[in-house]
Amino acid sequence: MAAEELTLSGHIQHHLTNAKMCSTDAGLAFNKACADSGFWTWHVDTLAWSIGLGLIFLWIFRSAAKKSTTGVPGKFQCFIEMIVEFVGDNVKDTYHGKSSLIAPLALTIFVWVFLMNLMDLIPVDFLPAFAGFVGETAFGMDSHDVYMKIVPTTDINLTAALAIGVFILMIGYSIKIKGISGFIAELTLHPFSSSNKLVQVILIPFNLLLETIALVAKPFSLALRLFGNLYAGELIFILIGAIGLMQLPLHFIWAVFHILVIVLQAFVFMMLTIVYLSMASSDSH
């Protein structure tokens, strides 16, 4: 195993592998022991980093909310309110219904995804190497067996979880606003429609197929866009990190470019969430 890790592809593979945890007959098992565990495997690094960052987000914003004053705000409150107002304005511009959920949902997605993307700017070897060191000295593990993927948004599980959450809300809003019959009508009576009842019935399967694809494509595009962008970015960081001293200027350039990407991807995820929920809540089709 150690020999494999020394090659370039092994190094990259090591960086792109999550720390796994699963329960086997012998109790909790980790990493390579979980190779065959199937669905019931937990990516502990993704979970730990994402939940940790989510808690940091909530802690920062909650402390701002507690201290918030309607008088002259401090600099910290101004900063937080800038983000809140930015998200609020975007929600107001796009979502015309009344909902107390959309805005906090958008805020959570924006800041949380941004924080998780931000982990991409930490030099790729720092935290994995530190984790390897800790694993080796504290737990007596082979440092090559310690996996640590610190950017949760490069894990399809996380982006898919966000997209599924949004998808559930989309269906929920559709049914809440239009009723079950309205929702089903939306899926079956468009885009092809006819005044002839018989033709209409014949068209239902085609409509259902098209509309279902259109509906399901939304969470897929959400999940894969974020995952793909960040995964590719992370991969390039790893590749740059593998080329020796020349990496410094390249790393700098890619990191500067990536500052744009991480904010943009967080913003895009938030905006698309609002747009999809807005489409789900509007009657016109």
């Binding site: 669905f39 979970l47 409150q77 599980n157």
Partner: peptide, 30 residues
């Protein structure tokens, strides 16, 4: 895809709920 998905979904839900309950209203209200 594995159980992490479920964990993240739960975390996401809790975060959004907390944000909706304790973060957004006071900030936006202020």
């Amino acid at each position: 895809l594995n159980a992490t998905l479920i964990g993240e979904l739960i975390a996401f839900t809790v975060f959004v709920w907390f944000c909706m309950k304790y973060v957004w209203p006071p900030l936006n209200g202020a």
